[in-house]
């Protein structure tokens, strides 16, 4: 009995300690971000690795998600004789929810895991300690550029995802099934509001980008410096950031689209 209680206490205090460390790490990250922004090429390099290399997967999945939405949406709307509203359905679901969320999930598994593995391996091979020995702050040199690259890349990727999805919906809805192109676009334009829908979607994706990057760099920095530790940290990045994205999405949606 006593042993179980000790274990329970250990688990809880460990979790609390980790959350505290992650928060302190986040503050440090912001404090040392000056270097990442002054030496912009460091951040640009990371935008290449997390943003540009994610382009293909994001755009192809966006296209397919939009095409599926077009097929399924048409099937349901047709029953109520309002298949012209297909454009509205595709655009609103992509811009408000699917764009930011699915792009963030893909980004977490494509780029977040890579960031964790890279930083974790740097730690395991004592590159981070070597930097400290040379009076180079590893948070400023390694962590901050990766964080800001994620924050910058995520909204762009989400916008590309939504745009490709709407194009996919157009391909299936208008080109394949034969919904009227005029009403497809005009009904979409009539009911998608720039501030209400598109800007809120962008805000969501910026928040998700910050969350994913924070979790990824933290897990990498905090990883046990062994092969096993790095692999565990990489898995934790994907699992934690996926859960955090979905939870944060619920909270943001509740604030943004309540009522009206």
């Amino acid at each position: 009995m006593r042993e179980h209680l000790i274990n329970l206490g250990h688990v809880v205090s460990d979790a609390v300690w980790r959350v505290g460390f992650a928060s302190r790490f986040f503050v440090m990250l912001i404090v040392y971000s000056g270097t990442a922004l002054r030496r912009l090429h460091l951040t640009i390099r990371e935008i290449y690795f997390s943003g540009v290399l994610s382009l293909l997967i994001i755009m192809v999945s966006g296209l397919f998600v939009g095409m599926v939405l077009g097929l399924q949406g048409y099937d349901t709307l047709e029953r109520y004789g309002s298949s012209e509203a297909l454009g509205v359905l595709v655009a609103l679901s992509l811009v408000r929810e699917l764009g930011p969320v699915v792009a963030a999930l893909l980004f977490a598994s494509r780029a977040g895991s890579a960031i964790t593995a890279e930083i974790g391996l740097m730690k395991a091979t004592e590159q981070l300690s070597a930097m400290e020995m040379m009076a180079v702050n590893p948070i400023a040199r390694v962590v901050a550029p990766r964080f800001w690259a994620g924050v910058v890349s995520m909204p762009l990727l989400a916008a590309l995802f939504s745009a490709m999805g709407i194009f996919g919906g157009y391909l299936v809805g208008v080109r394949l099934i034969g919904v009227d192109a005029g009403s497809f676009w005009s009904q979409m334009q009539a009911s998608v509001d720039f501030r209400e829908d598109i800007l809120n979607g962008v805000i969501k994706s910026v928040v998700f980008g910050a969350l994913i990057s924070w979790i990824a760099v933290f897990e990498g920095y905090d990883a046990e410096p062994t092969a096993e530790g790095v692999s565990g940290a990489t898995t934790r990045t994907v699992v934690t950031s996926s859960l955090v994205i979905l939870a944060a999405d619920f909270v943001l949606t509740a604030f943004m689209f309540r009522g009206t």
């Binding site: 290449y48 943003g51 540009v52």
Partner: peptide
Amino acid sequence: TLDLWVGIFVASGIIALLFLGLKVGNLAAA
């Protein structure tokens, strides 16, 4: 080359946002 690719990426992201704003949303009309 790296800068070029990042430039292409950022430009295409901004174009996607413009597409969403102008063609999908009602920014042009408003």
